[in-house]
């Protein structure tokens, strides 16, 4: 009973309990669900990781980064190169750390660019890395693409789940700390933020790097699912668009938004890919445009509006009922 009252009064504790319960349910799923569900869930988890880590930086600051594909690609290639030279958990960790270094370099170079210029830069970065890797493979190693030591789908699933759990914890801690406030202030007015003592460069780079780490780690895990990779597969522009689309589609006002967005969008992707493969891109584009035009706050906005309207109606009905009684 005491626990229940505590849960009722403390919102953070309540949310944390729900999240932990969901994660626990997800962790036990492989025991009683068919294999294809686990494979699909792994994809969903990957996109949730990508989208949540994209929103971690781009959400509050408003810097639209098209770098995710670059970071995922770095993760994928690190795993491919490391192969089985070390245990898999270490491979994932090292891939994430390699991504951190790339992100540090990129962040230090680019985060003084504003608005569209930052976006263009991150876009160019992806292409630069891809063509560089292509060139190096052609001229140094004389290969095109590599094989990755495969992991079974259950392992992939659990690694994604662990990455997601850590990411959610980190996001929660950042948003609750003073750095969460600083990030938002940077998004609102960077100049003012610096004049009240926020070291905007450090805060931006640090968050950018943290977000990149998770993207790199997710890429490292996914690499084992594809078994064969080349620069075109690893550094695929698609992985830059998807987190942006999913975040906008879900809504960024709350952490639920990107999660809902990526779950719905991944499912939609699977559905369209299997049922209407030849119209897949077109429908995807159309849904995306409609979402941007008519869902300014994403699905989350729609849900919140619907909920508010429902609450109003319930309250009104109750009031009406009371009147009838009296």
């Amino acid at each position: 009973m005491e626990i229940l009252t505590l849960l009722k009064s403390n919102k953070t504790l309540r949310t944390a309990t729900i999240v932990v319960l969901i994660l626990l349910i997800l962790a036990t799923l492989p025991i009683y669900t068919p294999d294809y569900t686990i494979v699909l869930l792994s994809s969903i988890l990957m996109y949730v990781v990508l989208t949540v880590s994209w929103v971690l930086f781009s959400g509050p600051t408003g810097y639209i980064s098209l770098a995710p594909a670059a970071f995922i690609g770095v993760g994928i290639y690190s795993t491919a190169i490391l192969g089985d030279s070390m245990p898999f958990p270490v491979v994932v960790l090292v891939s994430g750390i390699v991504t951190i270094f790339i992100a540090l370099l990129v962040g230090a170079l680019t985060l003084r660019l504003k608005g569209i210029y930052f976006t263009i830069f991150t876009f160019g970065l992806l292409e630069l890395i891809r063509h560089l890797v292509l060139f190096l493979e052609l001229h140094l190693t004389g290969t095109r693409g590599r094989f990755v030591i495969a992991q079974d789908f259950i392992t992939v699933y659990f690694y994604m789940l662990i990455i997601l759990a850590v990411l959610l914890l980190v996001t929660f801690l950042i948003n609750r700390s003073k750095y969460g406030l600083a990030l938002r202030s940077i998004g609102q007015n960077e100049e003012a933020a610096s004049h009240i003592g926020v070291n905007v460069t450090t805060v931006k780079i640090a968050t950018f790097v943290i977000s990149a780490f998770f993207m790199g780690a997710a890429g490292a895990v996914m690499a084992t699912r594809w078994t064969y990779i080349d620069p075109g597969i690893a550094f695929n522009m698609f992985f830059s668009f998807m987190p942006v689309m999913m975040a906008l589609f879900g809504g960024m006002a709350h952490l639920y938004g990107p999660i809902i967005g990526s779950v719905v969008f991944t499912y939609l992707e699977e559905f369209l890919l299997t049922k209407l493969p030849e119209l897949y891109m077109m429908l995807f584009g159309a849904i995306f445009i409609v979402a941007i035009l008519y869902l300014p706050d994403g699905l989350l906005g729609v849900i919140q509006k619907g909920w508010a309207a429902l609450m109003r109606k319930v309250r009104k009905d109750n009031l009406g009922g009371n009147h009838a009684n009296s």
Binding site: L181, A182, R184, N189
Partner: peptide
């Protein structure tokens, strides 16, 4: 000012940093 933040949060950032 930081438009989408509350008045309290505006001042809080200044105090914290």
């Amino acid at each position: 000012i930081f438009g989408a933040m509350t008045a309290l949060e505006n001042v809080q950032v200044a105090l914290l940093f």
